[in-house]
Amino acid sequence: MTENMWAFQPTAGHLGGTDLTGYTVRASDGTIGKVDKHSDGVGDAFLVVDTGVWIFGKEVLLPARTVHRIDAQERVIFVDRTKEQIKNAPEFHRDQHLGNGGYREELGTYYGSGAPFGGRPA
């Protein structure tokens, strides 16, 4: 299940090679920040979002599967998670986690669990 978390949904409207840096990211209940880095590699797609003051300047890593829709004209990415779900995800540290398979597995499990729209497994 977690491997599917690292590919964009067919309905997202993502075109490979599109630079998403700087796009605003909106959760189902409000804006969470802007894309600082992204990957659209096959089976390795994700967004690194700078949350600014929302969670004290931290970054979060979102698997591509969380992307519901991309509005290229408005430069907005809509994700199908709440701000609280994103805030409660396993903490992300760029220098430790970008190449860390264990962290990606943990994050994939968190977002891909049976709980509605992700969440820590019971």
Rank of each mutant, 00 (worst) to 15 (best):
119 G>S: 09
102 G>Y: 05
57 G>C: 02
15 L>N: 10
66 T>F: 00
85 Q>Y: 01
77 I>S: 03
34 K>R: 15
40 D>H: 15
107 L>V: 02
61 L>T: 04
19 D>P: 02
57 G>T: 03
112 G>R: 12
72 A>T: 14
44 D>Q: 11
31 T>S: 06
75 R>P: 01
6 W>P: 15
64 A>D: 02
111 Y>R: 10
72 A>E: 10
17 G>Y: 05
27 A>N: 08
122 A>M: 08
65 R>L: 02
4 N>E: 11
77 I>P: 06
74 E>D: 11
108 G>Y: 09
88 N>C: 03
51 T>S: 11
3 E>I: 08
35 V>I: 15
80 D>C: 04
65 R>S: 11
74 E>I: 04
54 W>N: 13
112 G>C: 12
103 Y>Q: 05
86 I>Q: 01
114 G>W: 15
5 M>G: 04
107 L>T: 02
39 S>P: 07
43 G>V: 00
63 P>T: 13
118 G>D: 07
96 Q>S: 08
15 L>V: 14
73 Q>F: 06
44 D>F: 09
111 Y>G: 02
55 I>M: 10
76 V>Q: 03
23 Y>L: 03
39 S>Q: 08
97 H>I: 08
43 G>M: 07
38 H>C: 08
30 G>V: 01
71 D>H: 09
4 N>S: 12
82 T>M: 10
60 V>E: 05
117 F>G: 07
33 G>Q: 13
22 G>C: 11
79 V>P: 00
20 L>K: 09
5 M>T: 05
100 N>H: 10
71 D>M: 06
22 G>M: 07
98 L>V: 15
55 I>L: 06
15 L>H: 08
21 T>L: 08
4 N>F: 09
36 D>C: 04
78 F>W: 12
53 V>R: 03
9 Q>E: 09
102 G>K: 10
79 V>M: 00
19 D>M: 06
19 D>F: 05
68 H>G: 05
105 E>M: 10
54 W>T: 11
30 G>Q: 09
43 G>I: 02
21 T>A: 12
11 T>R: 11
65 R>M: 05
51 T>W: 00
36 D>V: 03
84 E>F: 12
51 T>F: 02
42 V>M: 04
35 V>K: 12
52 G>L: 05
29 D>P: 03
44 D>S: 13
4 N>H: 14
20 L>D: 05
105 E>A: 13
32 I>D: 00
103 Y>G: 03
